[in-house]
Every structure is written in C-alpha cells, then in structure tokens.
Design a protein around this nucleic acid. Structure first.
Lengths: 245, 245
DNA sequence: GTTTCGAAAGTTTTCGAAGATTTGCTGCGG
DNA sequence: CCGCAGCAAATCTTCGAAAACTTTCGAAAC
C-alpha cells in the first residue's frame, strides 16, 4: 500500500508518458509549476517532511529535483539548513526583465529570419489556443489561470522556436519562467486591462516584420513590469526578515 | 574504515570549510572542474560505478551533483540511460561566444560605472597573480594549467564584480565556464602567442574607459574563438555517432 | 546467413533508515 | 528580567541495498 506506481505493465501504451526521467522529472516539473504559480510561496521553507507528503516520493528524488531548481534560480539552499523557495523583489523583476528584453528580441529576430511553414503553423495554432482563454480575471479558478499560463508559454515558445542559437533560447526560457512568477502575482492582484497584444505580435511575426515584432515584444515586457510594479502590493518590500530588523 | 569524514568535532574551527553544502558541493565542484579540464571528456558516459570510485561518495550524492551539472549544460541525461558529459562542437563554441560578447561587455560596462576602491584593488591583485603564471605552454604540467585557469577566472570575475545586475552576472558566469572547456583544448593543442591582452584590459578598466575596455574584451573573446576554430583539431567535427552514419 | 526471441549481466533508479546537524525549549545563574 | 548552557526534538544529509530498466549475448527458428 502507499504506492501504486506500476501499471499492469502490458496494457500501457509503449509511448505513454514514458519520455524523460519519469519519476524525478515529474516531481521536478510539478515543483517548478508550484513555485511559478506561488503555491509554494517565495521564501517559504521547503521541509522534506511536507514535500514527501505533497509529491509522494522519497527524499533522494526530492533532493535531486531541488538541486535542479536551485540551478534554475527558483530555490535556494544553505549549508545544513535545507531548501527554500527563491525570494522575489521588485529589483529582481526589473533586472530580469531588462535582460529579457534583449534575449526575447534577439531570439525573435533570429527566429523570424529562419521561420518555416511548420513554425508559422505552430504560432497560429498556439495563438488560437491562447485566445480562447484570453485574459484570466482575479476571480477565475486557479485551474483556468494555470491553463492560461501554459498556453501563454507555449505561444511565446512557438514564436522563437526557429531561432538558431541554443544558448540564447536556453537563457530566454529560464528568464521567461522566472517572469512567470511575477506574472502570476499580477494576475492575482491586478486587473489585466491589456488589449490584444498577442494578436498584434502574432501578425507582425507572421508578416516577418522584425522591427515591428521586436518593438511589440519589448513593449509587451515593459508594460507588464510597469503594471506589476505599480499594482502588486508586497513587491516593493523585500523578503520578510525573521531576526531583528 | 573506508570513511573518516568527521574530525574530532570540537577542534575544528567554526568557520572551517563548512561553508556551503560540504560533501555534495565538494563533489559538484570537483566534477565541474574535471569536465572543464576535459579529464572527463566530452560525450563520455558517466557510469556510477566509476564515479563512485573516483569521488569516493554515494550514488545519491553523485546524482545530486550531476543534476546540477545538467542544469548548467555541462552534462546530459536521457531517460533511463544515465548521464554523460555534454558534447562540444565548433557551432556550440561560436554560439556561446556570441552571447558572451554581449554579456561580458554589458556586465563590464556596468561594473566600471559602479567601481569602488575595493574593486580596483581586487583587479590589481588578481591580475598580478595571473601575470605571474602567464601563458601556460603545451608541455606545462596539468597542475600549472589548472592553476592558470583558476587565476584567469578570478581576474575576469574581478573585472565585473561591481556589476549591479545579478542575472547578467549569473549567465555571464555560466558562459564563462562553458568557454573554459574550449580554452582548455586551445591550451593543449595550440600555441598561445597572444600578447598582454589582460594587461591592456586591466589598464583600460582601471582608467574607467568603458568603450576601450569593452572593445578589448570583445576582441579577447573573438580572437580566442578564431584561434580555437583554426588550430584545435577535432573541434570542427561533430560528436562521434555510434550507430551508423 | 539472417532474424528473432529469451535469459543473464550490467546500470540506473528509487527507497527507507542511520548518522550528523540545527533548532527549540527548559532551567539555572547573573 | 535577561542571558546562556545544556538537553530534547525536529530536520537535514548521507549511505547502501533492493527494485526496475537497458543492454548484451547466445541459441533456436526461419
């Protein structure tokens, strides 16, 4: 009891969800999602006891996943004091957004120049999925917000998919995830009164207009930063210190 | 027997080597160094049996360290097939160097603008240490090359130490390490007939000449790429495929 | 001669527990 | 009343072995 991991074996399809590291990778992805959606709150201590219950896995597996998250900047670890969720701050958001502007425009420009038919198709498709769920409100259920976040990421990934620089794509992806944490807070606390920026972006990209597209995505990023900075409470103050002032 | 990890406990200084995760972090650092210096060769399979002997630690600890290395792009892992050292290629070197030019100039420019006395002191000091070991040759012992690599990194870290963008510094550091792998090969195969680029760089930075310093570091990077591309054998061919052609 | 199947060997992956460290609490002394 | 030493509880860290998977090798069938 307690663990029913293995299916009857013969009945599972050969190309099931088996891709990637299965258990460890699964836990990693779940934890990352939970941090990005602030289910695990910034600065929250991550005790193995609770984590073991929540993700139903062993300490070793958790440790491996946490190790990954530390490298990605989503968690911290110190000496013999265990792990905790990485803190957030306005300064951090400003800093990462600044770099994002460069990486997003760089990768987007390159992707447009190397765009293919399949690339255009995925952009159209992912935008369609995103548009169907447009603008989640404060009072929407969490499941909706999560789904929107997923589709939002898929759309933006599609835009730069044909970029020829793996390293640029890698860092862009990491920063995009980092930004998702702040976007989540914005979705919760602020009213999203943005217009169809994604539609404009899609059309500019499909028209292969590098300058226009890069300008739009830059504005897209900066607008989000400004909105978060002005409307999200608790972002301007630093992480809660426990000892003294 | 087998393991004598713990000191008599009371005699060890409170601020000994205790900083950071001790065991895990130690193994991580050792493995990273070994990959950077190509002791663990590109594409080499990393079997736990051998790793256990080499680093004298358990599977769990190794797995945690490897997890880190995967995030840093120094190792790969696939499904249930274990870990291997990340491959190298000329295309990869060109790609990461291109990004490096941006990140090094960006961080350097910012660091110069925010430079302090302590920053200048560390630059002077680390350059002195580097100059004392200048230009390791092909036939120098490995220990010398390792030490040079260490001092080289320390000098370049010192240059950008006062940069105010943590994310830029983080990515710059990762790419610098990546580049170290290729520098190592260059040290082994090619004759380093470069002149005092580090000295010029130091003086330009201390003179707070942003444009000159950024130009120098850009040339520094591009020259190394060109040298490696033309003189290092085996870099132009892709990783050895095992199955068929 | 080639292919397919199955068993054995080699590796990886996962787990639970023992060892070590930190944290929290209690009581004594200043 | 505050501070500190010492003990107890909680927590993290490390380890070795069992379970699951992949690969290899050899024999039988085509």
């Amino acid at each position: 009891m307690g663990k029913i991991l293995k299916m009857p074996s013969a009945t599972t399809a050969p190309q099931d969800v088996s891709r990637e590291d299965a258990a460890t990778f699964d836990v990693l992805r779940q934890m990352r999602e939970d941090i990005l959606c602030c289910v695990l709150k910034p600065d929250q201590r991550l005790r193995f006891g609770e984590l073991r219950d929540r993700y139903d896995t062993s300490v070793g597996t958790l440790r491996e996943a946490l190790s990954h998250l530390v490298s990605e900047g989503l968690a911290r670890t110190e000496a013999g004091r265990g792990f905790s969720v990485a803190p957030i701050s306005l300064a951090d958001f400003l800093d990462l957004s600044e770099l994002r502007v460069y990486l997003e425009t760089r990768t987007l420009a390159d992707a447009i120049r190397h765009g293919t038919d399949a690339w255009e198709a995925e952009i159209v498709g992912s935008h369609f999925l995103l548009a169907k769920l447009n603008a989640p409100r404060q009072d929407d259920p969490v499941a909706i917000k999560r789904e929107w976040g997923k589709r939002h990421k898929r759309f933006h990934d599609a835009l730069v998919a044909t970029c020829t620089s793996p390293w640029s794509l890698h860092f862009r992806s990491e920063l995009f995830d980092q930004a998702r944490r702040y976007h989540w807070l914005t979705m919760i606390h602020a009213r999203s009164r943005r217009r169809n920026e994604h539609l404009e972006l899609r059309d500019a990209v499909l028209a292969r207009d590098v300058d226009l597209a890069c300008g739009l995505i830059e504005k897209h990023i900066r607008t989000t930063v400004a909105q978060a900075a002005s409307e999200v409470p608790g972002l301007t103050m630093t992480a809660p210190k426990r000892k003294k002032a």
